[in-house]
Amino acid sequence: MISTDKPTGTPARRRSHRWFIALLLAPTLVGMGIFTILPILGSLVLAFFEWDLVSAPTFNGVDNFVALGADTTIRRAFINTIGFVAIAVTLQLALAMFLAVMIQSRMPNWLRLFFRSTFFFPLVLSAASVSIFMRYMFNEQFGVVNWMLNLVGISSVPWLTTQTGAAAVVIFVFVWQNFGFSFLILIGGLASIPKELHEAAEIDGASGWRHFRNITLPLISPSMLVASVTAMITALQVFDQPYVLTRGGPGDSTRSAVMVVFEAAFQRLEFGLASATGLVLMLIIMLITWGQFRLSRRLVFYQ
C-alpha cells in the first residue's frame, strides 16, 4: 500500500490532518460501535439473563443454553436448519455448476445473455414477495403446480399442509431465488480458466466427463469454495421464506433457527433466550466457515 498523505509540515497542518481522518471515519466507526459491536456485547450479556423487558433482568446462568437443548421446538428448529442447509446448498451448487458449464457451450451470444439475465433475475426480487406468489402456486386445490402435475397424470400433492411437502416447498423457493448468485460466482471462475487448457484436453482426447473432472473442477475449486461458503451462510439465516410460506408449520416442520430468535424475543418476550439462540447460530456460522476454509486447503487447487 502506498501512502500519499503522510502528515508532514507544520504542527497545525498535522493537527488538521488528524481531524480530517477522525471526521471521515466517525460516521462509520461510531455507527458500527453503536449498532453492531455494542449489540454483540449486549447479546453476550443478555444470554445469561432472563428478561421480559418489563421486570428487572435476573441472572440465570446457563439456563438459556440448557433450554436450547431441552426445548423440543428449539431443538427441532436447529435440526431443521442444518438439514435445510445441507439439502438446499447441495441442490443450489449442483444446479449452478451444471448451468454454468452448460452456458459455456456453443450458443449464440444473445441466447447466452438471455440465460444469464434470467438466472440473475430472482436476485433482485424480495424473498417475501416471491414467497407470497409461490404460496399461491403451491396451493393444494387451485395452485398452478398441482395443475401441472395433474396434466402429466400425477395426483395433487398437499404441498403446504404436510411436513415433507412444506419442507420441499421452502427448499424449492429458497433455491429458486438464490441459485443465480452461485451461478454468477461460478461463471466468473469458469471464465478465468485459460482456453489453452481446454484445447489441450481436447487434443488429448479427454471425454466430456473426464474433461470436467480433471480440468474444469480443479480449476474452478476456488470459486466453488466461495460459492459454497456464501450459500451456506445465507441458508443458515433463512427466515423470510418459511415465515411467509408456512409460519414454521405444519407443527414445527419448517421452523428455522432465526424464526426461534424472532418468536422468543418478539412474541414471547424471552429476550435472554433469543440472545442465546442468536449466539449459538453465529457460532455455527463461524465454525462452518472456518471448517470450510480448512478443508479447502486440502481440496482446493490454486493456480
Binding site: G42, F266, L281
Partner: peptide
C-alpha cells in the same frame, strides 16, 4: 469482521437501543 455478524444476532439489543 463486523461483516460476519448476522443481523439476527444483533437484532434484540438493536431493538432495545
Amino acid at each position: 469482521a463486523t461483516m460476519m455478524v448476522p443481523v439476527q444476532v444483533t437484532i434484540v439489543p438493536v431493538f432495545m437501543l
